[in-house]
Simulated assay, not measured.
Amino acid sequence: MTRIIIQQKKPSLLTGIIAMLFGLILLLFPTLTIVTFALIFGIAVLLGGATTIASALKVRDTGYSYKRKLTEGIIAALLGILILIQPETAAALFVTIIGIWAILIGAIFIWSFYKISKAGFTGKLSLLFGILSLIMGAVLIFNPFESSRMIVVFIGIYSLVYGISMLLINRKK
């Protein structure tokens, strides 16, 4: 019988330092981070719209029905411009959509709990996750901008802890 040995590579010191810096930036500047992400998204949507418009105009003379593609490109470009003009609103809207999704998922989990005839451990987990999802969704919907800031802070804490753990792992080498 052949023995396969998998060598696990330790993460680099640079990974830990980058994770710590990323975490610190998120913790020190959560609002700026949210706005930056929204701006990057707005630029991507605007460029996607411009590309779609250019593609539609390119096939205009070939007989291909380009109007749908042109309309799609114009809508995307306008949406990108709106996001660039109001990045805070775009971020809050995005968090609100996540909140609605969380409420729907929570409702499905709770519904499945009541539909399971034998509500054992899995059923109880379904009920618990459903309730937590409903609560999280409500928090995200009723306070989207603060919730997005909270999410960024949680990611910052995670990155900071991850970076510190990478430094500790590399220290033991």
Rank of each mutant, 00 (worst) to 15 (best):
Tyr162Gln: 08
Leu160Ala: 14
Ile53Tyr: 09
Trp101Thr: 11
Thr51Cys: 07
Ile81Leu: 13
Ile74Asn: 10
Glu88Cys: 06
Leu79Pro: 02
Met20Gln: 00
Ser147Trp: 02
Leu70Ile: 04
Phe129Lys: 04
Ile100Cys: 14
Ile141Gly: 03
Leu127Ser: 04
Thr52Val: 11
Ile5Ala: 10
Leu79Trp: 11
Phe109Lys: 06
Leu132Asn: 07
Thr51Val: 11
Leu13Asp: 03
Ile157Asn: 05
Val161Trp: 08
Ile110Tyr: 10
Ser159Met: 11
Ser126Cys: 08
Phe37Leu: 14
Asn170Gly: 10
Gly49Lys: 11
Met1Trp: 00
Val161Cys: 08
Leu28Gly: 07
Leu134Val: 06
Thr71Gln: 02
Ile34Glu: 11
Trp101Gln: 08
Ile4Ser: 08
Phe37Ala: 11
Lys173Phe: 10
Val59Phe: 07
Trp111Thr: 13
Gly163Asn: 05
Phe41Gln: 08
Leu104Asn: 12
Lys10Ser: 13
Lys173Asn: 15
Leu47Arg: 11
Leu125Ser: 07
Ile40Ser: 14
Phe129Tyr: 10
Lys173Arg: 14
Ile18Asp: 01
Ser133Arg: 01
Arg149Cys: 07
Glu72Asn: 13
Ser147Ile: 07
Thr71His: 02
Lys115Thr: 14
Ser147Leu: 05
Ser55Tyr: 02
Val45Asn: 02
Glu146Thr: 10
Leu26His: 09
Val35Glu: 13
Ser117Met: 04
Leu84Gly: 11
Ile131Cys: 05
Leu160Arg: 03
Pro87Thr: 09
Asn143Asp: 14
Ala119Asn: 07
Thr2His: 06
Gly23His: 08
Ile157Met: 12
Gly42Ser: 04
Ile157Val: 15
Ile4Trp: 00
Met136Ala: 15
Trp111Gln: 12
Asn170Lys: 07
Ile40Tyr: 13
Ile98His: 01
Ile43Pro: 03
Ile53Thr: 11
Leu70Arg: 03
Leu128Thr: 14
Ser112Thr: 14
Lys118Leu: 10
Val45Trp: 01
Thr2Arg: 05
Gly23Gln: 07
Tyr158Pro: 01
Gly16Glu: 08
Leu82Gln: 04
Pro87Leu: 09
Ala38Met: 09
Trp111Glu: 09
Leu70Pro: 05
